[in-house]
């Protein structure tokens, strides 16, 4: 079909349909973002969704079922990480203490540490490691494929880097994530980790999440 064969009225009709579609898209986009408050760390309007995954803890499997119905603060690391990982878990201990009076956290909150170093971190050693900070903390790890089922959708990076003598370190995402009871990754707290900021963020994001089921 050549351009000459299209009638002017048909062109106008097409232009009108395109205009209406474009306007509808713009209005939808504006409406989706119009009610987003300025909450530090909030991932909205398109939070990543956690899918099926299965990891090992000293108490059995940790899966998406472990997260359903709970508000989970999640951090990825490894026990041979001497600086950021223990500092972050110490911060999470402070966050848990600050949120003791927050009913959402007190009744439905949990802290989960996932090791991206399954070669060195057994589930028993991981449990001992996190309970040093808080006996309520959970810890798990899994095979590379099992880890990727969770880290992939969340955009979490972890990569081994040789340090010589057969040793290695692991580059890894160091943000603390907040996952809501519907498995939406609603919050992300980057470095530097501050207990007051994360506690306030948890309260604001969980309030927002409950209002936006």
């Amino acid at each position: 079909m050549t351009d000459a064969s299209v009638s002017p009225s048909f062109k106008a009709w097409i232009a009108l349909v395109a205009f209406v579609a474009l306007s509808a898209g713009l209005i939808t986009a504006v409406l989706r973002t119009a009610d987003v408050p300025a909450i530090q760390g909030l991932l909205w309007p398109d939070p990543p969704q956690i899918g099926p995954f299965s990891l090992t803890s000293d108490k059995g499997r940790i899966s998406e079922e472990t997260l359903k119905g709970r508000w989970t603060l999640l951090f990825f690391g490894f026990t041979h990480c001497p600086d950021i990982c223990p500092s972050t878990l110490a911060t999470l201990k402070q966050v848990a203490a600050r949120l003791a009076e927050n009913k959402t956290f007190a009744d439905h909150g949990q802290v989960l540490f996932i090791s991206v170093d399954p070669a060195r971190d057994t589930s028993a050693a991981l449990a001992e490691y996190v309970r040093y900070f808080d006996p309520r903390f959970l810890a798990a790890t899994g095979t590379e494929a099992e880890l990727n089922a969770l880290t992939g959708p969340m955009g979490v990076i972890h990569a081994q880097v040789p340090t010589g003598g057969g040793e290695y370190s692991i580059d890894h995402t160091a943000s603390i994530f907040l996952i809501d009871p519907q498995l939406r990754v609603l919050g992300k707290f980057g470095l530097p980790h501050d207990a007051a900021t994360i506690s306030a963020g948890f309260t604001a994001i969980s309030d927002f999440g409950r209002a936006h089921p």
Binding site: C81, D83, I84, I157, V161, T163, S169, D171, H172, T173, A174, S175, K188, G190, L191
Partner: peptide
């Protein structure tokens, strides 16, 4: 400890 976006390297 070097930060690259939200990732850390040693």
């Amino acid at each position: 400890t070097k930060r690259v976006d939200d990732r850390v390297q040693m």
